[in-house]
Amino acid sequence: MNLFIGLLNMAIEKDNDRALYLVQKAEVLAEIELFYLLPHQRRWRSWFPEVIYCRVDVEKTRIYIKEAIKKGKWNMDDWPEMKHKILKLLSIDDAIIDLAV
């Protein structure tokens, strides 16, 4: 765990990016869960919840997604149901995606 904390601190100091921190944290937790725990320990939801939530600003998220669509990084083939729900919640038209493709 000390190594985990040290790596996360280095990542935060290096980029100071909250999103990168959360992604790295999720990756490390998934690795620990998959490779270092016994099967009965993996079922302990108090240790490793099914989903990790984070709060984001709606307007910043809308801007980020629109930029990702324009740059062609928003691939609707990956997780299409989730991405359609996100676009609907953020009031982003599917027409924007069609123009970017």
Score class of each variant (00 low, 15 high):
30 A>C: 07
31 E>F: 15
32 I>H: 02
32 I>Q: 01
34 L>V: 03
34 L>D: 12
35 F>K: 10
35 F>H: 12
36 Y>A: 13
36 Y>W: 13
36 Y>F: 15
38 L>Y: 10
39 P>E: 08
39 P>T: 06
39 P>I: 04
39 P>K: 07
41 Q>Y: 11
41 Q>N: 09
42 R>P: 00
42 R>W: 04
42 R>A: 05
42 R>D: 01
42 R>H: 04
43 R>N: 11
45 R>Q: 12
45 R>C: 04
45 R>E: 13
46 S>R: 08
46 S>N: 12
46 S>K: 08
47 W>E: 10
48 F>S: 03
48 F>P: 00
49 P>G: 05
49 P>K: 10
49 P>A: 09
49 P>V: 02
50 E>H: 08
51 V>P: 00
52 I>M: 15
54 C>I: 11
54 C>T: 14
55 R>S: 15
55 R>A: 09
56 V>Y: 12
57 D>L: 06
58 V>L: 05
58 V>Y: 05
59 E>Y: 03
59 E>V: 06
60 K>M: 07
60 K>H: 09
60 K>W: 08
60 K>L: 11
61 T>G: 09
63 I>R: 12
63 I>L: 09
63 I>C: 01
63 I>A: 06
64 Y>W: 12
64 Y>D: 12
66 K>T: 02
66 K>P: 00
67 E>H: 08
67 E>W: 03
67 E>C: 05
68 A>F: 07
68 A>N: 13
68 A>P: 00
68 A>I: 03
68 A>L: 14
69 I>G: 00
69 I>L: 02
69 I>D: 00
69 I>T: 00
70 K>G: 02
70 K>Y: 03
70 K>A: 13
70 K>D: 10
71 K>S: 11
72 G>N: 04
72 G>C: 09
72 G>R: 06
73 K>V: 07
73 K>L: 15
73 K>T: 07
73 K>A: 13
75 N>E: 10
75 N>F: 09
75 N>G: 07
76 M>N: 06
76 M>D: 02
76 M>E: 05
77 D>P: 00
77 D>W: 03
77 D>T: 05
77 D>S: 12
78 D>R: 06
78 D>M: 05
79 W>M: 11
80 P>S: 03
80 P>Y: 02
80 P>F: 01
80 P>I: 02
80 P>T: 02
81 E>I: 01
81 E>Q: 02
81 E>D: 10
83 K>T: 01
